[in-house]
Design a protein around this nucleic acid. Structure first.
Length: 549
RNA sequence: GCCCCUGUAGUUCAACGGAUAGAACAGGAGUUUUCUAAUCUCCCGAUGCGGGUUCGAUUCCUGCCGGGGGCGCCA
């Protein structure tokens, strides 16, 4: 990559002056008129050699070799060295983009690595709410970024098919057979305090499988919940390779904890706990006083199950922020039992999808389901499309709706709450998923027309005005992917694509691309490179790119 | 009380210790005989408060103020 070449060249130029520097810091100036790359080495080294940073910068430049990929190098500001890439570089890059197609932007940094990504994690018997949408959007995107970086990825989903919530749902269903399972759960949760004994009794019966009516309800609820979830995954464009359930983790977790009582865990008030205070954390219960495994113990078992079934090099787990401190304790306990698992595990958290009214909670039954949100957004999309002549209108509207929602989740750094303002997220103007999708369809229309008029893409004759903003952004894509992968942050890709789409839209507004002159092939190659880049970028975000909209 | 996260235009978000703190929405002014106006162009507008480290701080350290999460038998 050009970035590495530049770093190497600078390093050599610096050594030629008998100076030492550990890492060359290269960045893209925010302002495109400041060049394509910029380094601050002169400023960081100036003090120790007691020189003026600007003079030192010039000396470093004098020691740099000529390169046909670099058009000019200059000193700017207080001692920045700015590099301007040449037309040859951009032309070469455009050719590479259209040649490598769906591989453009990918890298091999995680070659031969097996990664398991656990995300979404909805609970059967409960609603699939917009919180699960957060986990799904982030997890799906991270999975794809990791895959694009060369790793083999397993998409995993861990679901709570046992526990008190199931008893609450069954209680609700017994009292109100007509309710859907999600609503039945809400009823049970709302009435838990008044019927605590009864619901706990149901929970025991589920566990012991000794009541036929409850067994039947359980099987029915589990099956219909899971089927319903599959429909939603279809809409979201997620496909899981493996499903894990608490029911299988439960006995293994219990055993793991029992084997380590007195060593890692200790008994306290009838329960089995882990003293997190010894590690700067807090105490958590792993087996309750009925000696049943808690979520903590099950998570411990899950790591074991994942390893046995898959044998990963890295395990990424995506959950809500509220589990952050909890997971630190689990990881510490895991470190004691399975040091190698703990080392390979990375916990990523996301914030809440908040509405102006406050936190969503399925406890109160006051939830917005993922489906109702998608449907509502879709309604608005269809309203906007009503004059269109597109044939598969419904499918396209769904892609746009899901894209709008995913974008609003992925546009900011993970871990923060998202204020989901219906009107803004649905406006589709600027900074939004549909903005990206729209730029893609416009570019697509241009390419179709170019094909019809038989204009072949070529970089032979560039446009007369110097390198457009578009080509100055296009070549950066692989770097953006690399950074998103290193930091597990899809939002770098979102931000980049929006900037890129803006550059394309300006280009599109200023220039007629398909026309009878000799610069048309170059403009077509730019358009094709843009289409290819935004397509790959949208794929990384898990957002579908319709051909027309 | 202790631990973790967080505070940037009116609003929702960016900024890998660097140049004039970027966008979008909202507000104001324009933009369509052209490949899709869900576009484009221009204007208006912000780093919670006080110290410190640094050639340089939105970014690192520290104190205060505000918001969120967690802290033994839920998941």
């Amino acid at each position: 990559m050009i970035r590495e070449q530049l770093k190497k060249a600078i390093k050599e130029a610096v050594s030629a002056l008998s100076l030492e520097t550990s890492e060359i810091h290269l960045e893209h100036p925010v302002d495109l008129t400041h060049g394509d790359y910029s380094t601050n080495v002169a400023m960081t080294l100036a003090k120790e050699v007691n020189k003026n940073p600007k003079e030192l910068a010039q000396e470093i430049i004098d020691n740099l070799k000529e390169d046909k990929l670099i058009e000019k190098i200059e000193v700017a500001g207080n001692g920045f060295i700015n590099f301007y890439l040449s037309k040859e570089f951009f032309a070469e890059n455009l050719n590479e983009i259209i040649k490598t197609k769906d591989k453009w932007g990918s890298n091999n940094s995680l070659k031969d690595e097996k990664t398991i990504v656990e995300y979404t994690d909805p609970n059967p018997f409960k609603e699939f709410h917009i919180g699960h949408l957060m986990s799904n959007a982030i997890g799906e995107s991270i999975s794809r970024i990791v895959e694009f970086s060369g790793a083999e990825v397993m998409h995993a989903n861990y679901q709570g098919d046992v526990g008190l919530h199931v008893a609450k749902a069954i209680f609700g269903k017994q009292k109100n057979p007509e309710l859907q399972w999600g609503k039945a759960y809400a009823y049970g949760a709302q009435n838990y305090e008044d019927h605590e004994e009864e619901i706990k009794e149901i929970n025991k019966k589920i566990y012991n499988k000794n009541d036929e009516e409850i067994n039947n309800l359980y099987e029915d609820g589990r099956k219909s919940s899971l089927e319903h979830f599959e429909e939603i995954y279809g809409k979201l464009g997620t496909k899981f390779d493996e499903y894990f359930f608490e029911s299988e983790a439960s006995p293994i977790g219990k055993k793991l904890v029992e084997e380590n009582v007195g060593k890692i865990f200790e008994e306290s008030d009838g329960a089995v706990i882990f003293r997190g205070e010894n590690f700067g954390l807090h105490t958590r219960v792993f087996l309750n006083s009925d000696k049943l495994p808690t979520y903590e113990a099950k998570d411990l078992a899950l790591a074991k199950i994942k390893t046995e079934r898959y044998g990963y090099d890295k395990s990424i787990v995506i959950t809500a922020n509220e589990q952050k401190e909890y997971y630190k304790v689990v990881l510490e306990a895991m470190k004691q039992i399975f040091p190698e698992f703990a080392k390979k595990t990375k916990h990523i958290t996301h914030g809440l999808l908040r509405l102006p009214s406050g936190k969503m909670a399925s406890r109160t039954g006051d939830v917005i389901t993922a489906e109702s949100l998608i449907d509502e957004v879709k309604e608005r999309v269809l309203e906007k499309m009503k004059d269109s002549d597109i044939t598969d209108m419904d499918k396209v509207a769904e892609k746009i709706a899901v894209g709008a929602i995913k974008y609003s989740i992925l546009k900011q750094s993970a871990g923060k709450d998202i204020i989901f303002d219906m009107d803004k997220s649905l406006s589709f103007e600027g900074d939004s998923g549909p903005y990206l999708q729209y730029a893609h369809t416009r570019a697509n229309a241009v390419l179709e027309k170019a094909k019809k008029e038989n204009i072949k893409p070529s970089t032979k004759i560039p446009r007369s005005n110097l390198g457009s903003d578009l080509e100055k952004l296009l070549y950066r894509f692989p770097e953006i992917v690399e950074r998103a992968n290193k930091e597990f942050e899809p939002h770098y890709i979102t931000t980049y694509l929006t900037e890129l789409a803006g550059a394309f839209n300006s280009f599109y507004a200023k220039e007629k691309i398909v026309e009878e002159n000799d610069t048309a092939p170059y403009k077509v190659v730019l358009t094709e490179a843009f289409t290819n880049t935004i397509k790959n970028g949208l794929w990384l975000l898990g957002i579908k790119a319709p051909e027309r909209m």
